[in-house]
Simulated assay, not measured.
Amino acid sequence: MHSYQFLWLAHHWHHSIESLPLWWLSGQRTSFTSQFLFKFVFIWFPLLSIPPEVMIFVVLHHTVNLNWIHLNVKRNSWMRIVEWVYNTPNFHAVHHYYPDGKNLCAMFTFFDRIFGTYVDPDTIDYSKEQFGLDGEPVTVRMIVGI
């Protein structure tokens, strides 16, 4: 959603948060276009005859993960270990510092290491880095995602 103009317009509003800490509702700040794109994926479950139980699990996991990565929690030592595989709030905060595309993976962090988009959260000085969209005002177009 960061590499293609249409997808960036759909995702842009999510990055308009300008202050730390992130909070769990930050994950819910998505444009109408983004909501449509993510909900559209679930149409394939019945078309591919995937059992409803699997769809329920996937939807619940997606919802919990979205809220988890936007939580305002202090980093614990166990999170560093988890970050080798799974996204954590600290890992995802880096994503909001680099809207041009760092720590892009929403769930499995090893993809960022493979594709060169990984930034170690321990190397970020949060007081000196730019956060959000550099004061860009929120508009109706941003909320709609066009």
Rank of each mutant, 00 (worst) to 15 (best):
H2W: 12
L9Q: 14
H11I: 03
H11F: 07
H15V: 00
I17S: 01
E18V: 00
S19P: 00
P21H: 02
W23L: 09
L25S: 11
G27H: 04
R29E: 08
T30M: 15
S31P: 12
F32V: 15
T33E: 13
S34P: 05
S34H: 15
Q35C: 12
F36H: 06
L37C: 12
F42C: 05
F45M: 05
P46M: 04
P46S: 07
L47T: 05
P51H: 15
P51L: 10
P51D: 15
P52N: 07
P52Q: 06
E53G: 12
V54W: 13
F57D: 02
V58T: 07
V58H: 05
L60Y: 05
H61C: 12
V64Q: 02
V64R: 02
V64L: 11
N65A: 06
N65T: 07
L66S: 10
W68M: 07
V73G: 01
V73P: 00
V73E: 05
K74D: 08
S77R: 10
R80L: 12
E83Q: 07
E83Y: 04
W84G: 08
W84C: 03
W84T: 02
V85R: 03
Y86M: 07
N87R: 09
N87A: 13
P89V: 02
N90S: 10
N90G: 06
V94T: 06
V94L: 08
Y97S: 13
Y97T: 10
P99R: 01
D100C: 08
C105K: 08
C105S: 15
A106H: 09
M107Q: 11
F108K: 03
T109M: 11
F111R: 11
F111M: 13
F111A: 12
R113W: 12
Y118F: 15
V119D: 06
V119H: 06
V119A: 05
P121A: 07
D122W: 05
D122E: 14
T123H: 09
T123M: 07
Y126R: 06
Y126T: 06
S127M: 03
S127A: 09
S127G: 04
S127C: 02
F131G: 01
F131L: 09
F131A: 02
L133I: 00
D134R: 03
D134V: 00
P137W: 07
V138N: 03
V138R: 04
V138G: 00
V138A: 03
V140M: 11
I143A: 10
